[in-house]
Design a protein around this nucleic acid. Structure first.
Lengths: 244, 244
DNA sequence: TATTTTTATATGTATATACTTATATCATGA
DNA sequence: TCATGATATAAGTATATACATATAAAAATA
């Protein structure tokens, strides 16, 4: 019977709903914090904490001395594009399309110098070397080359690769993913791209190079996702917090 | 003599410095909140607010019941790549290199359907139509095609374009920039690219399409930045806040 | 009328305090 | 030895309160 999430989160959820349903309209002011505090039966500090979260999401903005205003029509979804996050990313993004995977390579090796740097490993700590082709409605969509430290996921196998690395890490191993650092380039197609992505020699490729890490800072994935230039774009939402 | 920034921000700044200088080492625990509160002579709530900010920046992470740990070695700079933010972005990024601009087009027009949508304008509200070539040490670097509503910046002129749109908007007009939504694609070079970026027909181009807006949600820029595929990559840091 | 000053209002910051909950450590017992 | 349970610890949540400060609206003044 105890509340699963803190009050400020429940309140944020309710306010998000009101914005979505038009109770609070874009470009108009919301009730002030004291009024909301009274309505929800909490202190103003708790309301403020809820509003702070919504501000960071870009749903509202506040002006000291004035009030709180609804924005509400900014696109909010970020396109994650992480091999390990396919169930949040690709699957969610494509909705009802049929996403399948094909494992092209599943090997284990000692890390190169570069991998040792990116994944913070010693030279005697093996990494998985995985290449997967992801298809949408049987059409080649993205070619993913992924390296992951074996020690973090000793029991990784081909069956998991076909399903979801993400839910394996999160649900089975209890690892908490935290963030990613991505570098996006344009490149020319190479032999693998031509073979698996059905593209021509000389075609441009959109490559996303990524290091992803856990909540404690451990890197768990170094990957390259290669997309046909006309098949996909990469989307980023950057809300810069006001610099003090 | 009054403090220009709030205490929690000053404390965050000091802790950032300590991490940078190695007083608090990566992978080790920091002093607990009560100790820090005592040291800085503030309440624990104030310390917590400072730590919350550092957590969002990805510098530290906290575990309830355990403590606060330093991460500290995650690359933090985001490559903004916004025409209007060149003084935070391009200039800052390239440090001591000499960045110059060349105005290729500076016109005014009524918006197309697409511009009306992206910039939330009526068909009788004119937009500036700007093409700039940016050079680093006299080498072509990026070709920027920018559209901005005239009503937000009636006095924009060619001299400003050569200097900094960003500081004009921020310092002269007092507008507060808030965020941007970007879409990144790979593309094939077109005539303009070939002419100004010194590239060959068939070369891949990294294009960043962007809508940027002010704190109140008003879009003020719709732009395309086109980069030679081997000249530049686009970098993103994505710290996902723990989902509740 | 136009400008300046005052006042009311709403958000921001900061504190002290109490309680909750996740984690690690240490003691206990099978 | 290994699992279980108590205990200490540290961060998280929430409140009440006071004051600071930015903004808008109203009142006073030239």
């Amino acid at each position: 019977m105890q509340p699963q999430s803190p009050k400020y989160e429940q309140i944020a959820k309710e306010i998000r709903k009101r914005i979505r349903e038009g109770v609070y309209q874009p470009k108009t002011a919301m009730p002030d914090q004291n009024t909301l505090a009274e309505e929800f039966g909490v202190s103003r500090m708790t309301i403020k904490k809820a509003l702070d979260g919504l501000t960071m999401e870009g749903l509202i903005y506040t002006r000291r001395g004035d009030g709180t205003y609804v924005l509400g029509d900014i696109p909010l979804k970020i396109d994650t594009n992480s091999p390990a996050e396919e169930h949040m990313g690709l699957t969610a993004e494509l909705g009802h399309e049929r996403v399948t995977s094909q494992v092209i390579k599943f090997a284990i090796m000692f890390p190169t110098e570069e991998l040792m740097t990116h994944l913070k490993l010693q030279k005697n700590e093996p990494v998985f070397d995985i290449i997967r082709l992801r298809l949408v409605n049987d059409e080649p969509y993205v070619l993913e080359h992924t390296y992951m430290p074996q020690k973090l996921m000793p029991d990784l196998n081909e069956k998991i690769l076909l399903h979801s690395i993400y839910s394996y890490l999160k649900d089975d191993l209890g690892l908490k993913l935290s963030g990613a650092y991505r570098k996006i380039h344009a490149d020319l197609s190479n032999d693998l791209d031509i073979r698996y992505l059905n593209c021509q020699p000389g075609d441009p490729i959109l490559e996303v190079e990524q290091v992803a890490w856990l909540q404690d800072g451990t890197p768990f994935e170094y990957s390259f996702s290669r997309n046909r230039y006309n098949a996909r774009s990469y989307t980023v939402l950057d809300i810069s917090q006001p610099t003090v």
